[in-house]
């Protein structure tokens, strides 16, 4: 009996914490279905659902394209980072070169460089070689933080795979690259999927490089979400609707990859 009371009390406290914590997110979702005039009203609980904001943002001049840009940049940077990063993590965990430890150390260190420090040189370099306002250029900038991140995440995954597997494969006459593709890639597939998903998400949420390195053409969705603030009156409804759409991958990832979140976070943190 006493045990059940305690567990009920704990549940109610926990529920309260979660409700308070998720309140701002609920504000975003609800406001996406409100008219601007109702958001501006004094009574925050007045709610007459409408899809007006969603209709508006999909007919918006910039939002659909920026969403596409976001998707392309995030996929491209995740794909490149994961293919190069998994190869590097494999090499670093399997072969003993002279500078291995130093390389690992440096790669782990540089994954935490603040983006703003690189934004200035990136801007100058990209301007001089014409990569400014270019989806490809922005993807490159995103790879600069995603690649070291992927290596950091995958290193422990790869080191935990027993040496016997590759020895057996070698006896069967596999070349090194085949070993990597046929043995390691499938064995570490869980880690690789997690790395790809987190890399995608970091790129999806990224703001500084998008702000500094893109103009009208390569603009990504976070920039347009901010632009709904407008010069005169903020369009909160459309801002929230667009924000809700940006949150969909976030929901999907946090609720499905719960097991890997700690690993993903401690490998580098999520920051825009």
């Amino acid at each position: 009996m006493r045990k059940r009371v305690i567990s009920f009390v704990v549940l109610s406290v926990a529920l309260l914490i979660v409700l308070v914590e998720l309140f701002p997110i609920m504000v975003v979702i609800v406001n996406g279905f409100k008219r601007d005039i109702d958001i501006w009203s004094k009574n925050p609980f007045y709610f007459k659902p409408t899809l007006r904001s969603y209709q508006l943002i999909f007919r918006h001049r910039e939002f659909p394209r920026s969403l596409r840009n976001s998707f392309v940049v995030a996929s491209l940077s995740a794909l490149v980072s994961v293919s190069l990063g998994s190869m590097a993590a494999y090499g670093l965990s399997r072969f003993n070169f002279k500078f291995n430890d130093a390389l690992i150390f440096i790669l782990l260190m540089v994954r935490m460089i603040p983006q703003i420090s690189l934004a200035v040189p990136f801007y100058m370099i990209f301007r001089s070689i014409g990569l400014n306002d270019n989806v490809l250029g922005l993807s490159l900038a995103h790879i600069s933080f995603n690649l070291p991140y992927v290596v950091a995440l995958l290193l422990p995954f790869f080191s935990s795979i027993p040496k016997e597997y590759e020895e057996a494969a070698k006896v069967d006459g596999c070349k090194t690259f085949q070993i990597f593709l046929k043995i390691f890639f499938p064995l570490a597939s869980a880690g690789i999927v997690v790395a790809a998903v987190f890399a995608f998400l970091m790129s999806w949420n990224e703001f500084i490089y998008a702000l500094v390195l893109t103009g009208t053409r390569a603009k990504t969705a976070p920039i347009v979400v901010n632009a709904f603030m407008g010069q005169y009156a903020p369009l909160w409804g459309q801002l929230s609707a667009a924000g809700t759409i940006m949150l969909l991958p976030v929901f999907a990832v946090t609720l499905s990859l719960q097991r890997y979140i700690i690993r993903g976070l401690s490998a580098g943190g999520i920051k825009g």
């Binding site: 567990s7 975003v28 999806w204 949420n205 979400v225 924000g243 976030v250």
Partner: peptide
């Protein structure tokens, strides 16, 4: 400790960490 729904509540708590910082800033401003 064990209590009902603890797993789902735990993952719900993680949502803010992954919310785009821009959206978080704008929502607080609102």
């Amino acid at each position: 400790r064990d209590f009902p729904f603890s797993k789902i509540l735990r993952s719900l708590l993680m949502l803010p960490v992954f919310v785009l910082p821009v959206l978080s800033g704008l929502t607080w401003r609102l």
